[in-house]
Amino acid sequence: MSDDNEPGHGNSPAAWVAVVIMLIGFAVGTLAFWFDQPLIVWISVGVVVLGFIVGLVLAKLGYGVKGPRYTPKPHS
Rank of each mutant, 00 (worst) to 15 (best):
M1S: 15
V28E: 08
L50P: 05
Q37W: 00
P13D: 09
V54F: 08
G46L: 09
V45T: 10
T71Y: 10
L23V: 14
S2K: 14
F52W: 13
G29C: 04
V65A: 14
F33S: 15
L56K: 09
D4T: 13
I40T: 06
L39K: 03
T71W: 11
I40S: 02
A18I: 08
G8I: 00
T30F: 13
G29Q: 00
L39M: 07
Y70S: 08
M1Q: 15
V48I: 06
I24A: 12
V54T: 09
W34Q: 10
N11L: 06
P74Q: 10
V20P: 07
L23R: 08
A59Y: 06
M22I: 14
A27K: 06
F52T: 09
V47P: 03
P13R: 12
G55N: 03
A27G: 04
Y63C: 08
I21P: 01
D36P: 02
L31R: 04
V47Y: 08
E6P: 00
D4G: 14
P74F: 06
V19I: 13
G46S: 12
G29F: 01
L31E: 00
V65W: 14
V17C: 06
V20D: 12
F33T: 11
M22G: 10
P7W: 05
K73W: 07
I21L: 06
D36E: 00
T71P: 05
H75I: 03
P7G: 07
G64V: 01
V47R: 05
P7H: 07
R69H: 11
V19A: 14
V65D: 13
F33Q: 11
V65G: 12
L39S: 06
V57P: 00
T71I: 14
I21C: 05
Y63E: 04
L58A: 02
E6A: 11
Q37A: 04
G55C: 07
G10K: 00
G46T: 09
H9S: 10
D3P: 11
W16H: 15
H9F: 12
L23T: 11
G46V: 09
S2M: 10
I24Q: 10
A15R: 09
G67A: 03
P38Y: 00
I24K: 12
W16N: 15
V48H: 01
G10I: 02
N11K: 03
F26G: 07
F33P: 04
G25A: 11
P68D: 13
V28D: 05
G8T: 02
R69M: 10
P72T: 00
K66F: 14
G67C: 02
D3S: 13
G64N: 04
M1A: 15
I24D: 09
A18D: 04
R69E: 11
H9N: 10
A59P: 07
G10E: 04
